[in-house]
Simulated assay, not measured.
Amino acid sequence: MQNTSGYFRTAVKVLLVGLLVMFVSAGSIFAASQGGNQGNKTGVTIQVNPATRTVDQGGTASYAASLTSANGFSGNVTPTVSGLPANTTAAFTPASVTLTSGKSATVTLTVVTQATTPDGKADLTIATAAGTSQASGVVVQLVVQASKKMFTISGNLGAPLSPGATVPLNLYITNPNNKSLALSSLSVSVASVTRTQAAVAAGLSCTPADYAVTNYSGQYPLTVPVGTSTLQSLKLSPDLWPRIGMLDTNVNQDGCKGATLQLAYSGTGEGN
């Protein structure tokens, strides 16, 4: 918006933040023998369902493992898991079972990821320790998705700036995903200032140091629905919006007349 009599015209700079990552999960169990069964090295076979779990970072995945006695095996069986990605923990419930000849028992493997768990696909090997020998394992997959989502932020000042004036900035948030976002860590800064040709020719200065930004002061997270929303449409008081102010200094600020501000925006969004 050009304001030839004032000190400011808006220039919107859109900053792409966040990342939407999606992996397609596989659908089969890889095992030593046909049908998803473990070989009977120790007289125990394993069947696991499901073969693949997909979770967002910070989510939990569960697998049901059926342990069956084979070849007359009887004794205590302790399930194990290997191949977990970094920043991930796992536990079986129960931690061990006692099998008698020809009988089965089911244990549940629960895998807990963190926000810092690397996204991507991991092959987990579920095996058993029965007696003193380690059984060959069944491979299942854990697919971890980045929980950050794609969105854009822009802004618009509703009035021109002049020395000593402060104007609220109504942010526009576009959410192209198929579900709402939990938005946090909103930040606005003055990236650069473009002076008019007349100010440049006259050698009149105007820099980001002539301006001050007060960032959003409301509560987090902000729930942003699908589509384009504004802070106003989210029913947030203008008192909470970011504010752009022009400082009133002792030096000549005529170089800021008609100047264009390039604003930079950032934020963090997670899928609900």
Rank of each mutant, 00 (worst) to 15 (best):
Y7E: 02
A11E: 05
V12R: 12
V12M: 11
V17K: 03
M22Q: 15
M22S: 15
F23W: 06
V24L: 14
A26Q: 10
G27K: 02
Q34A: 13
N37H: 02
T42Q: 10
T45G: 02
I46M: 05
A51R: 01
T54H: 03
V55S: 05
Q57C: 03
A64R: 04
L67R: 01
L67C: 00
S69P: 05
G72M: 07
F73R: 01
P85L: 00
T89Q: 03
F92N: 02
P94A: 05
S96V: 08
T98W: 01
L99W: 01
K103M: 04
A105P: 01
T108Y: 02
T113H: 08
Q114W: 00
P118W: 01
P118E: 07
A130S: 15
T132F: 07
S133D: 09
S133T: 13
G137D: 01
G137M: 06
V140K: 05
M150L: 09
M150I: 12
M150S: 12
F151I: 09
S162P: 06
S162T: 00
A165S: 15
V167T: 11
N170G: 04
Y172R: 14
A182W: 01
L186F: 09
V190I: 12
S192T: 14
T194F: 01
A199M: 08
T207P: 06
T207S: 14
V213C: 03
T214K: 11
S217A: 13
G218I: 10
P221T: 08
T228A: 06
T230E: 08
L234N: 06
K235N: 14
K235Q: 15
P238G: 11
M246P: 11
N250F: 12
N250D: 13
Q253D: 09
C256L: 00
C256P: 06
L263E: 03
Y265C: 05
S266W: 07
